[in-house]
Design a protein around this nucleic acid. Structure first.
Lengths: 171, 171
DNA sequence: CAGCCTTGGTTCAAATCTGAAGCAAACCTA
DNA sequence: TAGGTTTGCTTCAGATTTGAACCAAGGCTG
């Protein structure tokens, strides 16, 4: 089959998408590195944990929610643990498993830095969009993410994609 | 001033955005690593060069178009040069400057891998969106990017942001 | 033109990320 | 319950990225 190249509308959208995502991620990384001493992804891990019951999650579960590989998560948590923001615990129900738990200090860092982060997200994104656009963005992104979560893109790729797994709740 | 937290609409949009961008970038990286032996960003560098007059660009210019730092570009180009896909040339008009030029081999790789890449972008993104959504996405992303390009986010941050610079065309 | 600031790019050291491999526990199934 | 597979997570080695430091060439000013 001959390639269906992008239309010029699609090309413009694609270029804008690449620019926006690169610039925004960069902005957030810098802001958080500055104010919280960690990249955006690490902050989002803390945020994820803070919302979980007991402020703790199984590694695989956290990886899945964060859309990152288990390998990447292992390193990230190791760093956060070294900083005392997260503690690793043994999963009582599965001796193989480990649980990442937000420490009080981690929660404190989160509470201290959240306002600045939200402010940056607002200034970079939401304050520039109309309410309708916020809705459109959600719809669009949900659709994209939905298609990629268990994405049988072209017949089963790598297996280390955490969001391709199921994890049993640890309790 | 008290923090203006995200509304629940904004929160949903933000979460969807993070999920979509992480998953999509991951998908593209894997696809291109597989088919072209390089991450998505490197591919986009080649693509950028291929569209430039003479298939060559000043380093700073390329960095700016690609929305990455000069440092990052230096390493990326070094790798691409090692693979023979790009050649560094001296800028005739400025002895400090260097120019990245797409080689024939680089162009060949691009032509060979472009169809698969486009197909992945389609499957992941455009084939899932309505034409209106494509338009909305462009509008939204253009707005985001526009706000961050020379973004005086909160009074002048780091200076190594290439898109904060001007570069003179080399020729 | 000397002195000084800016610009274009690279280099350094350290942090992060990646995919494959490894290891142990859990889960079958005969 | 032994044997084989899967699951959960870490470890390894190498690639990539980061921000600061560095260096040489350009530009400007007195």
């Amino acid at each position: 089959m001959t390639t269906r190249w992008l239309t010029s509308d699609e090309q413009r959208a694609w270029r804008a998408y690449m620019a926006a995502t690169l610039l925004l991620e960069d902005t957030l990384d810098r802001q958080l590195q500055q104010d919280a001493g960690m990249p955006h992804l690490y902050y989002s891990l803390l945020a994820n944990l803070s919302e979980a019951p007991g402020q703790r999650l199984r590694m695989t579960d956290l990886a899945e929610r964060s859309k990152i590989t288990r390998s990447r998560l292992t390193y990230a948590v190791a760093r956060l643990e070294k900083d005392g923001l997260v503690r690793r615990e043994q999963c009582p129900s599965d001796k193989r498993g480990s649980v990442a738990a937000l420490t009080d200090e981690g929660m404190a860092v989160l509470e201290r830095t959240a306002p600045g982060h939200v402010e940056t997200v607002r200034a970079s994104l939401f304050d520039r969009l109309s309410p309708e656009q916020v809705g459109q963005l959600e719809e669009i992104c949900t659709r994209i993410a939905g298609g990629l979560v268990d994405g049988t893109q072209d017949g089963g790729g790598p297996e280390d994609l955490p969001w391709k797994r199921r994890s049993t709740p640890c309790a």
